[in-house]
Design a protein around this nucleic acid. Sequence first.
DNA 1: TATTACATAGTAACCATTATTGTTTAGTAG
DNA 2: CTACTAAACAATAATGGTTACTATGTAATA
Lengths: 145, 145
Amino acid sequence: MQDVSLAIKNKGLRATPQRIAIYEALLPRKDHPSVEMLYNEIRSRFPSISLNTVYATLESLWHAELIQRLDVGDGRIRYDGNPRMHAHVVCTSCLRVDDLPQPSENTMLNLMRTAADVSQYRIDAGKLLFYGQCKACSADENATP
Amino acid sequence: MQDVSLAIKNKGLRATPQRIAIYEALLPRKDHPSVEMLYNEIRSRFPSISLNTVYATLESLWHAELIQRLDVGDGRIRYDGNPRMHAHVVCTSCLRVDDLPQPSENTMLNLMRTAADVSQYRIDAGKLLFYGQCKACSADENATP
DNA sequence: TATTACATAGTAACCATTATTGTTTAGTAG
DNA sequence: CTACTAAACAATAATGGTTACTATGTAATA
């Protein structure tokens, strides 16, 4: 509760009711919701909120490095309440996105360093995505061929 | 020349003049052009070609696994004449995209296998992207602060 | 209280991509 | 060579997530 408000203020942002609500809605979720998914959830408690505010707020939280922006290539951007670098898997059937515990953050940081060495770029961020089919979709496909 | 035509036919596609021209235009490039960039190049030799044909052709070549589709998140899709899995670096200033020789294809395939194990997904593809600033843009920034 | 800067809501515009449609071309069989 | 069938092409319109714009509201500062 107050943690959320404090975390926002600590980044130099105003802890408005809308921002607190959006951040609090995102944090417990593990399904990497899109803007519209969050918008629909927030609207039940915040009927007057605009879609635009959700866009702007998520961008602010992202710039403040409180959350992660995740473009998996399905046309809509997903958000992740965990700002630490980690890999993701995308189900190309149902488009769900899951976190991956492997490779570790250290391994990814090592990949980044290697990339910086060989490319001569200054590298700020990395993204590791896998695409395939989740267990549920594989089962469905076998059930109805 | 004939290689290109043959490669297309070997995938069961018709080797039309448009397809050959588009594929031949993409192959030597290392800058991962977008649809429009290729469209502009092709039009000089093929004034009547439509943008839509470039879209359709690139999708055909991609489905045939002759080329690679690359969504780096800048709004337009980039194409890579090399279909083998490899990492990329994106310059967030000038949006150029470069290939990375590291990590090796084997390393990436190992990452895929690990991801499949821990996620219980059937994994078909992987994507490793790094974001930062290329040498030229870093130099420009230091020159004009 | 006046000032200034940031937030929000609502609407309209943007733009890469995809869908649709009618036409043309290539490949194949008779 | 001609007819048939399927694929490819070109032109236009439509889609849809995102951004821009504008006006209004709210919080921090002097």
